[in-house]
Simulated assay, not measured.
Amino acid sequence: MSRMNKFRKLAGISAFAFAAMTAVNSANAANWRYAHEEYEGDVQDVYAYKFKEYIEENSDHTLQVFRFGELGESDDIMEQTQAGILNFVNQSPGFTGSLIPEAQIFFIPYLMPTDMETVVEFFRTSEAINEDFPELYADKGLELLKMYPEGEMVVTVDEPVTEPADFNNKKIRVMTNPLLSETYAAFGATPTPLPWGEVYGALQTNMIQGQENPIFWIESGGLYEVSPNLVFTKHGWFTTAMMANKSFYDGLSDEDKKLVQDAADFAFEEIIQHIDGLADESLAKIQEASDDVTVTRLSDEQIAAFKERAPQVEEKFIEMTGDTGEELLNQFKEDLEEVQGE
């Protein structure tokens, strides 16, 4: 299948109609349904199948996994989860941000460190991640089971970027996330929200001049073919969240709740091992596949020019989320200080 066909792939019939026809209507059904946002072999897919492995090896339940495009895009699978058609969904805060504004905290640039050891320890121990976020998700009918990192964000552009001025007049694709738009506006670019299925074609036709994603996704989706200049800005990590329909989860027996929680924990440990070294492997594949690719790693001095623009994004986050967001941000920073202090 060509890269273009891969990005344009959608179900041949209405995803929602298909899901509705085959929905599991009982919380006690033996076959559970799980959808995520990525392709076969990508990080969310690996997590989903590790979750499935644990469920099926430790119970009589089965789990059906749906990948990107099989039931629509991110907004579609979230709608189906909230409606109870899907039992589980894996969705990044980039899309959940419109539903849960506080989830946009991951898009404040230079808030998160970029070394893997610190990032992983933060996700393991953070009070904001493990105590505050579940309450916010519960208010939207979702049981947050696990948040986990996928990889450092990398920007691909039509020409190398080393300073904010290089982003001037460039349309950079962003997820449908107001704070991410604010980030790229602060960096000097023109943020352009687009659904994922349109990104490859928009880069190919120069409708946009760049986008950001973890390097494995840039390789998997072939984005380097149409946006060959990779820029490591060290402004953050891509984070995702795995959750369940709350009514479904609350209706489970105590035994099944423990099963689901244990499966989520098992998949987390497996995915941490999976992403260790994944960025280097993916970059090597990209460089082997294309002689047009350039790699720019910003120096500390160059990073400082971008980093000094981060406070205005932080202020926008607080404006969007009010006291709840400010309290979450303070806890987030406290958690990070504790991890970095160790």
Rank of each mutant, 00 (worst) to 15 (best):
residue 228 P to S: 04
residue 294 T to P: 08
residue 266 F to A: 03
residue 326 E to I: 04
residue 224 Y to C: 00
residue 263 A to E: 10
residue 322 G to K: 03
residue 243 M to A: 09
residue 238 F to Y: 13
residue 266 F to S: 07
residue 226 V to F: 11
residue 253 S to C: 07
residue 311 P to K: 08
residue 248 F to A: 06
residue 228 P to E: 07
residue 270 E to I: 07
residue 253 S to T: 15
residue 225 E to F: 11
residue 270 E to G: 07
residue 273 Q to G: 15
residue 234 K to L: 06
residue 309 R to P: 05
residue 264 A to R: 01
residue 269 E to A: 00
residue 297 R to P: 02
residue 303 I to Q: 12
residue 230 L to Q: 00
residue 270 E to L: 04
residue 290 S to Q: 06
residue 324 T to Q: 10
residue 316 K to S: 13
residue 258 K to P: 02
residue 234 K to R: 14
residue 288 E to L: 12
residue 238 F to H: 14
residue 240 T to H: 02
residue 311 P to S: 11
residue 329 L to V: 00
residue 238 F to L: 13
residue 323 D to A: 15
residue 307 K to M: 06
residue 327 E to H: 03
residue 324 T to Y: 03
residue 322 G to E: 01
residue 249 Y to T: 01
residue 232 F to Q: 02
residue 233 T to M: 15
residue 318 I to T: 08
residue 272 I to S: 07
residue 283 L to D: 00
residue 284 A to K: 14
residue 257 K to N: 07
residue 325 G to S: 10
residue 299 S to T: 15
residue 313 V to F: 03
residue 223 L to D: 10
residue 315 E to Q: 05
residue 270 E to T: 07
residue 303 I to G: 04
residue 261 Q to C: 08
residue 298 L to P: 09
residue 314 E to N: 11
residue 319 E to R: 00
residue 317 F to H: 05
residue 254 D to S: 14
residue 304 A to Y: 06
residue 327 E to C: 00
residue 312 Q to T: 13
residue 313 V to T: 07
residue 301 E to M: 08
residue 269 E to N: 10
residue 226 V to M: 12
residue 274 H to Y: 15
residue 286 I to H: 04
residue 225 E to M: 14
residue 272 I to Y: 11
residue 309 R to E: 12
residue 313 V to R: 04
residue 231 V to A: 01
residue 329 L to Y: 00
residue 269 E to Y: 02
residue 297 R to T: 09
residue 237 W to C: 01
residue 300 D to F: 08
residue 248 F to G: 11
residue 243 M to L: 08
residue 265 D to T: 14
residue 261 Q to M: 13
residue 269 E to M: 05
residue 252 L to M: 12
residue 331 Q to W: 01
residue 287 Q to Y: 01
residue 275 I to V: 12
residue 270 E to Q: 15
residue 248 F to K: 13
residue 240 T to K: 03
residue 260 V to D: 04
residue 278 L to E: 08
residue 224 Y to K: 01
residue 242 M to K: 09
residue 279 A to K: 01
residue 262 D to W: 04
residue 277 G to C: 05
residue 289 A to Y: 09
residue 306 F to S: 13
residue 259 L to G: 06
residue 303 I to E: 09
residue 305 A to S: 15
residue 268 F to T: 10
residue 277 G to M: 02
residue 280 D to A: 14
residue 251 G to C: 08
residue 330 N to F: 00
residue 322 G to C: 11
residue 288 E to D: 14
residue 225 E to P: 08
residue 322 G to M: 09
residue 292 D to Y: 02
residue 287 Q to T: 11
residue 319 E to F: 00
residue 237 W to H: 09
residue 231 V to T: 03
residue 314 E to D: 07
residue 282 S to P: 02
residue 251 G to N: 15
residue 246 K to C: 07
residue 317 F to W: 11
residue 277 G to K: 03
residue 269 E to L: 03
residue 300 D to I: 05
residue 309 R to V: 03
residue 266 F to L: 04
residue 270 E to N: 11
residue 273 Q to D: 14
residue 245 N to F: 10
residue 246 K to F: 09
residue 229 N to P: 00
residue 235 H to I: 08
residue 235 H to C: 11
residue 285 K to S: 10
residue 314 E to G: 10
residue 320 M to L: 15
residue 311 P to N: 09
residue 252 L to G: 13
residue 233 T to N: 13
residue 281 E to R: 12
residue 292 D to P: 01
